[in-house]
């Protein structure tokens, strides 16, 4: 069975893929449909959804178009989710690979380092980092990457540890392959599928983290984001609940879709496990 056929067998994954595609389309179409800045005041404040033509989701406390904010927010969420995950992988994969392959004191040292980062409460650390570095897309991406690489390192280490004594790896050592060849050609390719699955789930978590940071007022002040929209509307929740409701749904759908896709990838990449799970 082909990779996609296995993926599509999981109906949830297919739905997730569709939702995700729609959100990506939203991000791409945002500058076309709403070419003006989402920060611009365009109508009187507190319009409820559908109240005035052309403002499907109404306006916020400052008279900004909620629909425009939602579309532009998609771009920011996806960007921060993807880039911070990539950075976390760049930190976590080599660390985990080296710790798992060499073992011994190197492993001890690297794992203490990883444990240290795992002990620190993630979100609190992210807050402190962004607050002190000053909020910007770069500082947010860095902060999220710094708090989310430890699981990657642990996963890769565990995979390397179980594979490094596999007989084919020992055979490679015996025929004289160098350590770097063994790591890159014998072991790493066999750890890719769990890494891919973890990465897809990490994008989801990163999006949640970003929204929580901007909810607390730690978003980049130059870009519109879903978390900011909810945070800004928090004080008027009694009068205008929809201002918080729609961005929340947007976050929920994105994160849900990414999780569904992640599960589908897991099934497709590890067909044996998937059968066991059923």
């Amino acid at each position: 069975m082909s990779f996609f056929a296995r993926f599509a067998q999981n109906r949830g994954a297919l739905i997730g893929l569709i939702i995700l595609t729609m959100i990506i389309l939203m991000a791409i179409l945002a500058p076309l449909l709403y070419p003006e800045s989402p920060w611009r005041m365009v109508q009187r404040p507190f319009l409820s959804p559908m109240e005035v033509d052309g403002f499907v989701l109404g306006t916020d406390t400052m008279g900004r178009d909620v629909a425009a904010g939602l579309m532009h927010g998609a771009w920011v969420s996806l960007l921060i989710g993807l880039v911070s995950t990539a950075v976390a992988l760049i930190i976590g994969v080599p660390l985990g690979a080296i710790a798992g392959y060499y073992g011994g004191l190197i492993d001890d040292g690297l794992m203490r380092f990883t444990e240290f980062f795992q002990t620190i409460p993630n979100f609190a650390l992210a807050i402190v980092l962004v607050a002190i570095m000053q909020p910007s897309v770069t500082s947010i991406v860095l902060a999220i990457a710094i708090v989310s690489w430890p699981p990657v390192a642990r996963l890769v280490r565990a995979e390397f540890m179980s594979l490094r004594h596999r007989e084919y790896v020992e055979a490679a050592r015996l025929v004289g392959q160098t350590n770097s060849t063994i790591i890159l050609r014998q072991i790493l390719p066999n750890t890719l599928s769990p890494i891919i699955v973890l990465a897809s789930l990490m994008v989801a978590t990163a999006i949640l983290l970003e929204s929580a940071l901007s909810f607390l007022g730690l978003g980049d002040p130059n870009v519109m984001s879903w978390g900011y929209m909810i945070g800004a509307a928090r004080t008027v929740i009694r009068q205008a609940w929809w201002l918080s409701f729609f961005p929340g749904i947007a976050i929920l759908l994105t994160v849900l879709a990414l999780n569904l896709v992640g599960e589908g990838l897991d099934d497709a990449l590890n067909p044996k496990l998937a059968r066991q799970r059923q």
Binding site: R166, E167, Y168, V169, E170, A171, A172, L174, V175, R185, Q186, P189, N190
Partner: peptide, 15 residues
Amino acid sequence: QMVFQDPYASLNPRT
């Protein structure tokens, strides 16, 4: 050189 015990673990599944 060595010949190993487990015929399933002694070859890299992706090579």
